[in-house]
Computed example of a mutant assay.
Amino acid sequence: MDATTLRRALARTRLAPVVAFPKRLARVARHDAKVLRTSARWLFTSREHHNYTYDLTTLSRHHLAWFVSVVCDVPVGQVRSWFAELEGDEKLRGHIETATATASRRGLADRHVRYARRVGWYAMVRVRKPAHVVETGVDKGLGSCVLAAALLRNAAEGHPGRLTSLDINPEAGYLARATPWADVIDLVIGDSIASIRELDRPVDFFLHDSDHSRGHEKNEFDAVEAKLAPGAILLTDNVTATNVLAQHAERTGRRFLAYRETPARHWYPGDGIGVAW
């Protein structure tokens, strides 16, 4: 009896789990070893302690391009060109690197610029040409810079817009305090729910990226609903953790889609983009 025939025979007996165990153990060990190597490398090469930045895998970038294409009803090739537009913006990249290196919080931030899913935010703003974007949760201001860069490109094409960035931390947004990006940003410090209720102009594009508790996320979407312009688009950075935006979309008669990113060479499993429109 050859080895293949023997394995097939054993697979039909009670010994099957025992015989399969070494192979299963080897697969788990290889997976865990890869995770440990990636985690160890990150511990010694990165300074970040939260709100991690990373690149996307090639496959994940392809999926994100198609996600934006479907949501915004534009050719996927055009979406890829907007990805390239952001990533080729050397002025923005240089600013982020310099501002990170000289910031008082530089000990907890990586200087290397990694946009990940934010290229999707950028492309959506380039498609939709919103007059008023609102984001909740600013942290260093990387996302704010990305959104502002898209608005500046839109303005150069005759479609001006502004970004209202909301955060409860008075130290938030240090990357977004330099011109020309700061020229289109209104940074508001305070509770996001109260700040949303005080908005004095319609919202065309809303992004939840603040307190990721389910209750707070729901309260933000409930608060902004009365402020939305016709045809507004809603995004959440919390889609891998809750179903809040999907439920909000169902209640308000919108469509909903979700994308989950896959980081390249990083231990963190990634976040995603939920969209209701």
Rank of each mutant, 00 (worst) to 15 (best):
F44L: 13
S46G: 06
E48I: 11
H49I: 15
H50L: 12
H50R: 14
T53M: 11
Y54M: 14
D55R: 15
L56Q: 15
T58L: 14
T58C: 00
T58F: 05
S60I: 14
R61K: 14
H63G: 02
H63L: 15
H63W: 04
L64M: 11
L64N: 12
A65K: 13
W66H: 15
F67P: 12
V68S: 10
V68N: 10
C72G: 03
V74P: 02
P75K: 09
P75Y: 12
P75M: 13
P75T: 12
G77Q: 11
V79P: 00
S81N: 12
F83S: 04
E87G: 07
G88F: 12
E90M: 11
R93C: 07
G94V: 00
G94Y: 07
H95L: 15
I96F: 05
T98D: 12
T98K: 11
T100L: 06
A101G: 13
A101Y: 05
T102I: 09
A103V: 01
S104L: 14
R105V: 04
G107I: 02
R111T: 15
R111C: 07
Y115Q: 04
Y115E: 03
A116H: 11
A116Y: 10
A116V: 00
R117Q: 14
V119D: 01
W121K: 03
Y122D: 07
M124L: 13
V125D: 03
R126H: 08
V127W: 02
V127M: 06
P130Y: 10
P130C: 12
A131G: 13
H132K: 05
V133Y: 03
E135M: 12
E135W: 03
T136Y: 05
V138K: 07
D139T: 02
G143N: 08
G143V: 11
G143F: 01
S144Y: 01
C145Y: 00
C145R: 01
A148Q: 02
A150V: 04
A150Q: 06
A150M: 10
L151E: 01
L151D: 02
R153L: 01
N154K: 08
A156Y: 01
A156C: 06
E157R: 13
E157Q: 15
H159T: 09
H159M: 05
H159A: 15
G161Y: 09
G161A: 11
L166Y: 06
L166K: 07
D167V: 11
N169Y: 09
P170M: 11
P170T: 10
A172P: 08
G173T: 06
Y174E: 06
Y174L: 08
L175C: 07
L175E: 04
A176L: 03
A178F: 03
T179F: 00
T179Y: 03
P180I: 00
P180L: 02
D183W: 04
D183E: 15
V184Q: 01
I185K: 03
I185A: 04
I189F: 03
